[in-house]
Nucleic acid binder design. Sequence first.
RNA 1: GCGAUUGUAGCUCAGUUGGUUAGAGCGCCGGUUUGUGGUACCGGAGGUCGCGGGUUCAAACCCCGUCAAUCGCCCCA
Length: 418
Amino acid sequence: MSRIETPKPIRGTQDIFGAEAEAFAHVVETFERVRKLYRFRRVEMPVFEKTEVFSRSLGETTDVVSKEMYSFLDRGDESLTLRPEFTAGIARAYLTDGWQQYAPLKVATHGPLFRYERPQKGRYRQFHQLDAEIIGAAEPQADVELLAMADQLLKELGIADGVTLQLNTLGDAESREAWRAALVEHFRESRDALSEDSQERLEKNPLRILDSKDPRDKALVHNAPRIDDFLSGEAERFFLQVTDGLDAAGVAWTRNAALVRGLDYYRHTAFEFVTDRLGAQGTVLGGGRYDGLMESLGGAPTPAVGWAAGIERLAMLVTDAGRVAIDTLDVILAVEDDRALRVAQQSLAQLRRAGFSADMIASGSPRKRFDKAVKADARVILGLTHNEDQVVRSLKGPDDWVEKVDAVVLPLILAQGQ
RNA sequence: GCGAUUGUAGCUCAGUUGGUUAGAGCGCCGGUUUGUGGUACCGGAGGUCGCGGGUUCAAACCCCGUCAAUCGCCCCA
């Protein structure tokens, strides 16, 4: 006889349960509430798209596309990909569904995303994000509004302590290109002093040298060219308007001139809310302005800005901050004699209809049911037993609660047998 | 893709230099005690020691491989 192997969960997936699941739900509920305050419209997006939706927007050559996407062929031999981010799919919908008519369009969504990566703290292959985008707004006010919403979200979640908003500008396309060239030149001069990884980066992704963790690199980063020296007048003005707006809105921020985005479609504002409490995965919420994205999907040039935040990471912070209140159980029924079961079932149903949260213990040894009920940590323990042909109740708990519960239960006790 | 650490009961973990039948606490099930109570006691079920191979008279323990978890690196849309 061959034994049946229990299938194992897929690496990097998680089964979320208990306090973690409550924290998760709390994050999503808070996001939904805040998003409505800012009048972001809810959208639901497909979990998979044609692969080109992501590969076009990310750039064909990057590691991200070649190694880190969950792609597969469907029965029509078409390459599809589980969404690794929200932005590209939303941008696609903006173009294919005629959403241009709503511009400037503020949308928000949340759900699972998939990236083929090595799992580690706060990082999974199926993970979940909150997402907010403003499409078709070129004004710095859009950046400000988006950041103000993110700031309020973190505050309402109660995790703003120890989290800082780091802000940078990448300038417009020309500024960015000039800066990049200067960086390459700077690092090439001292190439041998760079870490091995960064010598690689010099060819593939020089901006990334700026946030290297290697001390050898940090020394060279210190006096590397700064974007500020390459900003066009317009780019400088744009950034100033963003920072002024944040100050006016009371959103605290710090400048991080080394904060970059790897992809070419990012322009102007880049930002991350960073915590020191999550090990290597310090970014809690991040985003930026991606004015170049729509064109890579064949659309007209369209300014846009957005952010995303990992729900798991937020939930971890919320849990650590002790912000999730576990709903206490109102009533626990202990059926201490099986002859009381019918009345117990009636009581349970009526209590729930009356708005009490209620559970029942009616299995196992009758004499141990009350002890189990005690451990349920309910406001009111309702014991039901049988005595002289009658179901008898006992109530234990604060007087006001006992009174309210008995108002529901007593009529059922009195009505038995009628 | 790379490195470090860890895999023993449903959970948290012991398990000595390799040595008889692998243990505890919690949880679960049953019984006794108490009898309007969160008590105590007794008993029971539950283990391919992650998986596969090797060394050995003998492996949970040593060696190799593999899978997974955790943390970090790379990457981070």
